[in-house]
């Protein structure tokens, strides 16, 4: 499980999990009517849940970056591990940006079908 290629995609795996979780929660919430009372911004329980989920995953993905940086130890030849380290950092940063960008809509867009 410590294969460098798996570490490389770890952050995006978190992003994928968040994606599924947030989308499923939103659909389930609408189906069970958690979005009612959508009058004041914070009164909608569904929006609150979604925001919490997104914030948690954002923190988790930042944590991934920190963890990867800390455990960075040259496993192979210097050249190879520098390469892998750099690609890992790029991909993780891309995942962090994607998380912020993809889920920004939960803060204000219409939650459920009219």
């Amino acid at each position: 499980m410590r294969h460098p290629l798996l570490l490389l995609i770890l952050a995006f795996v978190v992003w994928s999990g968040t994606f599924l979780l947030v989308y499923a929660t939103q659909a389930t919430g609408c189906s069970l009517g958690w979005h009612n009372n959508d009058i004041a911004f914070w009164r909608s329980p569904l929006r609150f849940i979604l925001i919490v989920l997104v914030v948690i995953s954002f923190v988790a993905i930042l944590g991934t970056l920190a963890w990867l940086r800390r455990r960075h130890k040259p496993a192979a030849a210097l050249e190879t591990s520098t390469f892998l380290g750099q690609v890992k950092t790029y991909v993780t940063i891309a995942a962090i940006f994607s998380t912020a960008f993809c889920f920004a809509g939960v803060f204000w867009l219409t939650l459920c079908p009219l």
Binding site: I9, F12, W15, S16, F19, V22, Y23, Q26, A27, C30, L50, V91, A94, A95, S98, C102, F103, A104, G105, V106, L109, T110, L111, C112, P113
Partner: peptide, 26 residues
């Protein structure tokens, strides 16, 4: 990155089936 992102956009073929706007936004 592209490989992952490309799995997060399938619903853009289904914008007109009445999925709520926040889900479409992802």
């Amino acid at each position: 990155s592209m490989a992952f992102l490309s799995f997060g956009l399938w619903v853009h073929h289904m914008y007109t089936v009445g999925i709520p706007h926040v889900a479409l936004s992802f």
